[in-house]
Simulated assay, not measured.
Amino acid sequence: MTTNNTAAAAAAARKPTIDTARVQDQAESLINSSLSWLHTHWLQILIGIGAGIAVAAALFWLRGLGPRIVARSRTGTGWSAVFGRAVERTHGFFIVMLSAKLVVGYAGAPADVASTVTFLFTVAAVFQVAVWAREIILGAIEHRTRGEHIGGEALGSAMGLIRLLVSFGVFAIAFVVVLDNLGVNVTGLVAGLGVGGIAIGLAAQGIFADLFAALAIIFDRPFRRGDAVTYDSTSGNVEEIGLKSTRIRGIDGELRVISNKNLLDKEIQNNTVRERRRSKFTIGLAYETPPDKLDRFPEMMKEVIEASGMTYVRCGFFQFGASSLDFDVQFDSPSADFTEAYNGRHRTGIAILRRCNEEGLVIAYPMQVNYLAAPDGRLVDPRARPAASGPVDATES
């Protein structure tokens, strides 16, 4: 029993207690110094109070301009509306403490009063900056997504999650900054938050990867909803950009769903914003074509292509084929519209064939001739006129 009583007494001795006498002395000191300050600096205090009220009134008037700036924005998501909402979110406590901080030095306040004002101002300023930062970040994201990227339910889900992450991030930083200004050792807290963030990131890395990919699509704008895109060997129109995946309607009517991260890892061709569409023909002329006509062939192609409403790029001889002299012909459509380019290619191809017929140019096609051997070992050309003794057996394809 004696041992237990001794342990309890030792524990009670180690337990921290509040020194009420010391607290009372500090309170009395603060009251006495404040009364002495009021007695000796009453004129400076009155002037400071007047100046503080004037500053606060001006700041409240400036805050009142926020809703007016927002109302001037036609869409409600422009940059003026973003900054207007940030101004509107200015808290009254911050305005009061800012006014007090500006005039407390002029009034000659004692150290205890000045330190109290500084502490309250620091807390108000840090959290006010966090509020401004959150409003500007979220407003910038909404401005970038306005009317062309993520729509409907997907936009609400994305913005809800983004708002939660941004709010948690900025206010966590503000809380750590306030503790650091109070003299608290925040090293362990920062380390704990870092470890917790790493654990959450590893557990949901797939979700966050697709989320950040969606944000990359929002800000970088490689494509928009309704654009015709090509990735890998797939082509289609973007129907919806979601929080985790993008839906693309294929050219055969099928709906293709691909995660945002995997989509951005591929080379994407945005056919909607292309300037033109290029078509190519390979035209093989017969080896019997006279050289002067071969030399004039590029000029003929230029005339035909421009007459068909297309833009001539180039035409020239590029190889000796197995059964033809091959020319490469390239031309562009006047716009990026696929239907217009397709119809223009059709017109141009028919016009080239018609011009070749008019010029007497033969477009070669593969041909094979089988030669036969005569009884004396000579080769017999099956294209030669048959002898009177009888026909020559030959095969031509």
Rank of each mutant, 00 (worst) to 15 (best):
T3Y: 10
T3H: 12
M1F: 01
A21L: 03
S29R: 04
T17S: 09
S33N: 12
I18W: 01
A10T: 10
R14E: 11
A13Y: 03
A9M: 08
T17I: 02
V23I: 05
A11N: 03
A7T: 04
I18M: 03
A10C: 06
N5Q: 03
A21H: 05
P16M: 02
A21K: 00
L30F: 13
T17K: 15
T3V: 14
P16Q: 10
M1Y: 11
V23Y: 05
R22F: 09
A11T: 15
A11Q: 09
A8I: 13
N5I: 03
K15D: 06
T3D: 02
I31T: 15
I18Q: 03
A13T: 14
S29M: 11
A8N: 13
I31L: 10
S29V: 06
A11I: 03
A8E: 15
N4K: 03
D19R: 03
D25M: 09
T2E: 06
N5M: 12
R22S: 08
V23R: 13
M1H: 07
S29I: 11
N32D: 15
T20Y: 13
S29F: 15
Q26Y: 10
K15E: 15
D19L: 01
I18Y: 05
A27Q: 06
N5T: 02
P16K: 15
A12W: 14
S33K: 09
A10E: 03
I18T: 04
T17Y: 00
A11E: 01
A13W: 14
A27W: 07
A10M: 10
A21Y: 06
A11L: 05
S33P: 14
A7G: 04
A9K: 11
A27F: 13
A8P: 00
D25G: 06
A13D: 13
P16E: 07
I31K: 09
A27H: 15
T17F: 01
R14D: 01
S29A: 08
M1W: 01
T17C: 08
S29D: 15
